[in-house]
Write a protein that binds this DNA or RNA. Structure first.
Lengths: 351, 351
DNA sequence: CTAAAAAATGTGTTCGAGCACTTTTAAAAA
DNA sequence: TTTTTAAAAGTGCTCGAACACATTTTTTAG
């Protein structure tokens, strides 16, 4: 049985007091060179790991974390974040953690700035945010960092070396995966890559997925081809039907965000039977169309998992001094009607 | 800021001493009815959660866990378990956890029984095992339970109410998923459901996956059909080629275990170009054939994740008294050449 | 009504790390 | 050599829960 060494053990081994060991460990100085060398040698020899439980017992501070994300009342995609936060709260309910959630309007820069300011006023120990607006996010992140507030981001990445941790998916790969799936189920033919929503220039994810899709076509021997198009959600029906009429060779549609159900609805309505559809995220509406085979595959971005990991990374950093990677790239889950339930079922079959 | 109540706080609120509060919390008796009611009311009112850190500091016992699994030197499928154990050890290196791994020969009952006895002699606090042999496993589980050793299992389930926790996948669903994938990429035609190895009667997973596949065919309007066949690994080449010659209408092969690469090898060798292949697990050899498109999909059983979750469930139960579900059914991951890397990459890009 | 027994309640120590504080030792100045 | 000062080392308290043990209160028996 491997013995667990304590500071006291080390002190005895080195023939000094635990105070000296403590000073060596924390490099507080006021230690003779001999003592420093002796203690350091022993620390290395036994591979000393401090008892994090005892350490944390002493530092019994309430850690506060702010979560800054798009309002999930306005876009169902963010709804799963609510669950994610809830499950983290539950998981760490026995610890002194305080999580405040602030919601901004994902299309409104001013709302984002306003909520960011609220975060600043709350002076939390850490912030986990979705940096929807690149430029403004950078400003906020720098401001937070200057106040020694740890900042993590998730969902989409922005380059900034002050960011503690990023959780998300590789979106170029994500696009490639969609292409591969079309390749497998179509074999050949044209696929329309769609963006649905307002202001596609802000939606960096769209460009990356589009790029990934095309990359696959170029780099493999596939007989697939693609055409990229953006639509507003308001006029989708007229514009899309018109577009499809102009491109009768389109055999598949790749919707680059969670609005996939809007296209599925039209496929059903206009009886476009031979159109294969692949999109994103397990929204209720998407799931319905997945189950009735209007959608062939959904790619699961798992916002719940993302926010969960982002939060646990922060908490375990504060509570246990655990090392955290700069980036967590999550697996890209392929979902069809059959493995869907294995992702959505609750894990809580206690007895 | 939500205040964290301690036993001392509760004692003051109830007008008793912390000893009395302690007796109420742990139902140690020797408390007057009045005190019991008062303290219980306050505990409920403030939703008292004990500080697990402090609790664990006191109970500074080294918890020992035995892992009893098939020898990963003999079957690559179990290799990822080694990594899983390693990562748990790393994750909890600052805590007093001792994990002993015992490997048995997965085809040899006597080896299983022998190693089980070794586990009994080690008198651990808990055991996490793969119950390869149903009857013998039951005996061992009962024996362990009678000595107050907590037993969890993973990979395959066996019915026994003494089991603390099971981690695995729903194998019937797993078979359905394979059927769905063939449905999407083939549209119609016959699929051969294969078992490769010795003694398929012991391999309950095979029957469940087979059942799931057939269930899908029956319950949906698919034009797929299936034929089930078992092979020994030794004579696979002769027998399989012979079998395929007898069934020229077979357009897909579903290998129900990680031996998928053996079929892929034959497909390559005999240039059976139009045969679609779906199998299990991310072994090196399978990955090679997935990347060169001989295998269309792999279903990821994620033994590493399974053993990881099984172990953390046990540890967090012991260390933090965390509630654990009776069953953890893990998501069934669909892997193709494109999303593969998102599952296999290491999460350790520290900076 | 008192003594003994039983029940109820209170007190104080432990766990390991961290840090403030005190004491000891060594070096420098008088 | 003695005094002063700084450096080095040691001591002891804290965190919250758990539990052994001590003390007080209540009940029961004589």
């Amino acid at each position: 049985m491997r013995k667990k060494y304590t500071i006291k053990d080390i002190a005895e081994l080195a023939g000094v007091s635990k105070g000296t060991v403590d000073r060596v460990i924390h490099k507080r100085g006021k230690v003779s060179e001999k003592a420093f060398v002796d203690v350091t040698r022993i620390l290395e020899e036994i591979d000393y790991k401090p008892n994090l439980i005892a350490r944390n017992l002493k530092n019994n501070k309430v850690y506060s974390i702010c979560v800054l994300i798009p309002d999930y009342h306005l876009d169902d995609y963010w709804l799963s974040c609510k669950e994610g936060i809830q499950s983290v709260k539950q998981e760490f309910s026995a610890f002194d953690i305080e999580i405040n959630t602030l919601l901004y309007h994902s299309k409104d820069v001013n709302s984002f700035l306003q909520k960011s300011n609220e975060v600043l006023n709350l002076k939390p120990d850490a912030v986990l945010m979705v940096p929807s607006f690149q430029k403004e996010s950078e400003t906020i992140i720098n401001l937070l960092a200057s106040q020694d507030i740890v900042v993590s981001i998730f969902n989409n990445n922005i380059p900034n070396n002050k960011i503690f941790n990023f959780v998300g998916q590789d979106l170029i790969k994500s696009g490639r995966i969609a292409a591969k799936l079309f390749d497998l189920i179509l074999g050949n033919g044209k696929v329309a890559i769609l963006y649905i929503g307002a202001n596609f220039k802000n939606a960096t994810y769209f460009h990356e997925k589009d790029q990934g899709f095309k990359e696959y076509i170029q780099q493999t021997e596939t007989a697939l081809s693609s055409v990229t198009k953006t639509f507003s959600s308001e006029n989708l029906e007229i514009e899309l039907i018109d577009f499809l009429n102009q491109h009768p060779d389109i055999k598949g549609i790749f919707v680059t965000n969670s609005k996939t159900y809007m296209v599925a609805e039209l496929i059903k309505k206009h009886k476009l039977k031979d159109l294969k559809l692949i999109g994103y995220d397990l929204l209720e509406e998407n799931i319905t169309y997945l189950k009735n085979n209007t959608i062939q595959f959904l790619i699961h971005q798992n916002a719940k998992h993302q926010i969960h990991l982002g939060l646990t990374n922060l908490i375990e950093h504060f509570m246990f001094g655990k090392k955290t990677p700069k980036r967590n790239l999550l697996p890209i889950n392929i979902i069809n009607s059959e493995n869907l339930s294995s992702y959505t079922q609750k894990e809580t079959i206690y007895e």
